[in-house]
Design a protein around this nucleic acid. Structure first.
Lengths: 195, 195
DNA sequence: GTCTATACGGCGATAGAC
DNA sequence: GTCTATCGCCGTATAGAC
């Protein structure tokens, strides 16, 4: 196994463990075991725990941006947003069981001081910005586009929190349907195709 | 200081510490110090950490129900819901700085197994049930009333998460305005006064 | 009932053999 | 580059004097 492989397998293991068992609750030993790497070796790849966390959020961000490329190929901004909301569907069970990995990380990172919070929030910021651009392309003024983006992400995160709390996917499903309906009947005035 | 006083001052200290510095991140020593009680003494009042957590959520639930009594005195269900949403206003800064205490607790409790999660979710459950009753009284069928309750709580929690993540109260303020507008223009058909 | 001292375990991090 | 052994710290929880 090459060096890069071990590094990324550590990052991946950390990523899913943070998601499933929580950020504060996951130890270096847990991560090393999951990645089948001896404990001490972890410190060869990451000088400190914080470094590993940073790598995990960067990995998350890269993943989100990669998936976005797919939707960006669609012709109309409305379709792009609908594709985004559609993509929630297949994560419903995972989110119900373990919550949103990004949301959890943001919340937990915000509690314990330091700059971990800033790293984690980058994913949300990137998502909001992408949505804002889509709503702008639909013809909404910037302020409205921002508000719509905030609504979309906020409603999504809220529904995930409820489903996770009650271990009941209903809240997520309900919100997906509501958001689709909302996007579908937003005034189409001035909608611009992708140039 | 009477026995009950020390007990409740421990609970109160734990409550605010969980909120401000996080659930996993708060130690018994921290709580004891904040309540000005010697560490070992804590175990006289609470056999284990989990017992303390349980007491904290019960304290939260009691607080929420007490505040609700105020709104329940209003004549129309719509006014009761509007009063509820209005009450968000004065917590905006606190929520932006530290997140929603109930939401955080639910999320963190869900990660680390055990039954802490069930305790924490009781507050959300109680809120949802109260909202459902209000929407029912406005004349909505039960299924719709549940969906509306979920939307209200979900949108609230989502906006708090965003504001907390970005340390920017705008998201909460935006959502309060949006929810007020929504409640204001919901069809008034068959609205029933409080009997 | 109140408090001090301490046992015990798990954590992040390091030293150093290979 | 890889791995084992271990240090030092801080957490929960307990024992026992007062």
């Amino acid at each position: 196994m090459a060096v890069a492989d071990k590094r990324t397998s550590l990052v991946r293991a950390a990523d899913t463990l943070f998601h499933h068992t929580g950020f504060e609750h996951t130890s270096i030993a847990d991560i090393a075991a999951a990645a089948k790497v001896p404990v001490g070796n972890v410190y060869y790849y990451f000088k400190t725990r914080t470094d590993l966390v940073k790598a995990v959020t960067e990995h998350r961000l890269a993943g989100v941006e990669a998936r976005r490329a797919e939707w960006d190929s669609l012709a109309s901004p409305r379709d792009r947003l609908l594709a985004y909301v559609d993509s929630f569907e297949k994560h419903t069970e995972d989110m119900t069981a373990h919550g949103c990995p990004v949301g959890s990380l943001c919340l937990e990172a915000n509690k314990q001081g330091g700059d971990a919070a800033k790293e984690a929030s980058a994913v949300f910021r990137s998502s909001l910005e992408w949505m804002r651009i889509q709503f702008r392309a639909m013809g909404f003024p910037d302020k409205v586009a921002r508000a719509h983006a905030a609504r979309l992400l906020g409603a999504r995160q809220g529904s995930v929190l409820l489903s996770n709390t009650f271990k009941d996917p209903t809240y997520i499903r309900l919100e997906i349907a509501r958001l689709k309906g909302w996007l579908g009947k937003l005034p189409p005035a001035g909608e611009r195709k992708k140039s």
